[in-house]
Amino acid sequence: MSVYPYLVAAWLFGVGTYGIVTSRDCVHLIVCLTVVQSSTYVVLLGVGYVTGGKAPIFADIPTTSVTVDPVVQALTLTDVVVEATVTALLLALAVQAHKRFRSVDPDQMGLMHG
């Protein structure tokens, strides 16, 4: 059980990377990148987990309760925001690439207008 979250993270990383390398479509490639990035969420949240710990929000639990690490949760929030912005920027690039090369296949782009 104690390595399970890290195995999930490694699997997400591997499967996303495979998708990026074999992709035939820019949009698909960008989605694969988000899969790779989601592996970092699993690692971060897994590192900060404490067995039996509660969410670090003390609105309805005593302030002395054992909680999971709030720092990695804040880091994950940062990670999600950065991923969203990177995705938006890449999608905009994909739109421009399609205008220019009339294709969203990464293989076609370099070959036609090298």
Binding site: M1, S2, V3, Y4, P5, Y6, A10, G46, V47, G48, Y49, V50, T51, G53, P56, F58, T63, T67, V68, D69, P70, V71, V72
Partner: peptide, 24 residues
């Protein structure tokens, strides 16, 4: 990953200090 603490055995100080100090 070998040196990462096992799942559920978080041992960092920083997070604990922040969680403890937040409310007071």
């Amino acid at each position: 990953l070998v040196s990462v603490p096992g799942f559920g055995h978080y041992s960092g100080r920083y997070g604990r200090i922040l969680a403890r100090d937040t409310v007071p």
